[in-house]
């Protein structure tokens, strides 16, 4: 009954899920790894990216149909907003109890959720796939929509670029140093404030971009912010809080466990991923690629 091509289809399905999650979770992981900020509002930035992309498509449509321009616009606006949030609000929370950060970012979730509702209303919205990615290709008897393929490649690209910047560039060296000892880095003359703002903007950019990129295959609705943040957190926790590659592998594992879990026990589709998280947290509380907290 279950031949090989069917299993391959299921594998590709899991891979699509995984790369979607990675797009969203990468920014979350970045900010936690360096800044030790658990940003609940990451899902809200993602939601804003989706709404802004929709808005830009509406504005652009009579002139030119460019989904890509809309996505870039959305990501940039969200990045600027992220920068403002870091400068004006989050900055005052560093060095204080983590509870304050949680309260602040959670307050942002509520404020941004209401703002989106006030601007765009409660109707479900959607954006059509860009024509160039409308089709599908066949691989070993399996249909793979071009847009899904694009998302997979985008996920891998972000993982590689992120890794190159973090591991190889001088900015990355500063970032890694900041993660270890923020005060010492400041004492050595590095502009830690600008570094943090930059990090937060990069994270917001990724959130906005992933929100924009999901619009062709998901509905834009109130509440999409909260829905996604839970899954993103699961992935980050599985991979190890603060580990960029960990988040990548965490996403891949999440996708495949969900995908094959559905195949084996369709009545308990969500059981498998939560079971996975529970097992990992028992065996390695710091996640697959994380380091034990000192």
């Amino acid at each position: 009954m279950t031949d090989l091509s069917f299993l391959f289809t299921q594998f590709l399905g899991g891979l699509t899920t995984a790369m979607f999650l990675f797009l969203i979770a990468s920014g979350l992981s970045l900010v936690f790894g360096v800044m030790r900020v658990l940003n609940f509002a990451h899902g809200s930035f993602y939601m804003l990216g989706a709404y802004l992309a929709w808005q830009a498509v509406q504005w652009l449509t009579p002139l030119l149909e460019s989904f890509w321009l809309a996505a870039l616009f959305a990501a940039l606006v969200v990045a600027v907003l992220g920068g403002l949030v870091e400068r004006l609000l989050l900055r005052h929370m560093y060095g204080k109890e983590e509870l304050y950060q949680l309260l602040l970012t959670y307050a942002l979730v509520l404020i941004l959720g209401d703002a989106a509702k006030a601007i765009w209303g409660t109707q479900q919205l959607s954006v059509s796939r860009p024509p160039i990615l409308d089709g599908a290709i066949e691989m070993f008897g399996t249909v793979l929509p071009l847009y899904n393929l694009f998302i997979m490649l985008a996920g891998v690209a972000i993982a590689v670029i992120g890794w190159l910047i973090l591991a190889r560039s001088s900015a990355g060296r500063l970032v890694r140093a900041a993660a270890l000892d923020r005060e010492m880095l400041g004492a050595l003359g590095a502009n830690v404030g600008a570094l943090y703002t930059g990090m937060f903007m990069a994270s917001s950019f990724l959130a906005g971009l992933s929100g924009a990129l999901v619009t062709p295959i998901q509905s834009i609705v109130p509440g999409m912010d909260v829905e996604v943040i839970v899954e993103a957190f699961i992935v980050v926790v599985i991979g190890g809080l603060g580990s960029f590659w960990g988040t990548f592998w965490g996403s891949l594992i999440y996708g495949q466990v969900l995908s094959f879990g559905i195949l084996i026990m369709p009545s308990f589709s969500l059981f498998s991923v939560f079971a996975l998280m529970a097992v990992i947290l028992i065996v390695r509380p710091w996640g697959l690629f994380g380091k034990p907290m000192r």
């Binding site: 399905g13 699509t16 509440g223 996604v228 559905i262 369709p266 009545s267």
Partner: peptide, 16 residues
């Protein structure tokens, strides 16, 4: 198939 309410990605449910 039983996806959850608010499921963001239906792909594996559909392929299954």
């Amino acid at each position: 198939q039983w996806p959850k309410l608010g499921q963001a990605d239906f792909t594996p449910f559909i392929t299954a």
